[in-house]
């Protein structure tokens, strides 16, 4: 059996070290070792996007990342999305636009949407659909998710304006 390694990372802004075997994926370590079960396992082969997290700012499927590769990396997961005073604008927009049914794909969609709105604060419908092509949803038919991301973009730009004004 390969020796366990100590891996030091920053997860949702907090320093976190964990022990893992080389064969363990980031997804396994998040869910099984760190008890961060917000990140979901879907296909486990990189097709569905349910396990999307941000690794050094880039959306990745955590089932296709070895946890040992993450030494020194910054990881953002669904657990770090909410603001101190409640749901983030993306989360509220998903909720209020009914952009989820069974919910398994939702954490992945929210992480991808976060990266999208950071890169492109005002995306077109086509840009949203293209960016979210790596996240599959078998319930909603996608339209409500697209509505939610557009709504989230609107909310974020409004909250930016409010912050600037105050």
């Amino acid at each position: 059996m390969a020796k366990q390694r100590v891996v030091s990372t920053t997860i949702n802004g907090e320093s976190k070290s964990f022990l893992c075997e080389p064969r363990q994926t980031l997804l396994e370590v998040l869910r099984d070792s760190l008890d961060m079960t917000g990140t979901k396992e879907g296909c486990s082969n990189g097709n569905c996007g349910a396990c999307t997290v941000l690794l050094d700012g880039n959306p990745v499927t955590s089932c296709l990342v070895l946890a040992v590769e993450c030494e020194g990396s910054e990881i953002e997961t669904i657990e770090g999305i909410a603001d101190q005073d409640g749901l983030s604008p993306i989360q509220s927009a998903f909720l209020e636009n009914a952009a989820l049914q069974c919910g398994i794909c939702t954490p992945g969609f929210i992480m991808s949407s976060k990266a999208l709105l950071r890169d492109n604060p005002n995306p077109t419908e086509e840009e949203i659909r293209f960016y979210l092509a790596g996240n599959l949803c078998r319930c909603t038919g996608y339209d409500k998710i697209i509505d939610a991301v557009q709504d989230a973009a609107q909310r974020q730009s409004t909250s930016c304006q409010t912050t600037e004004a105050s």
């Binding site: 990189g46 499927t61 296709l64 092509a133």
Partner: peptide, 9 residues
């Protein structure tokens, strides 16, 4: 190639 998640890696 792939989606954004695959392109990141």
């Amino acid at each position: 190639i792939g989606g954004i998640q695959i392109q990141s890696r």
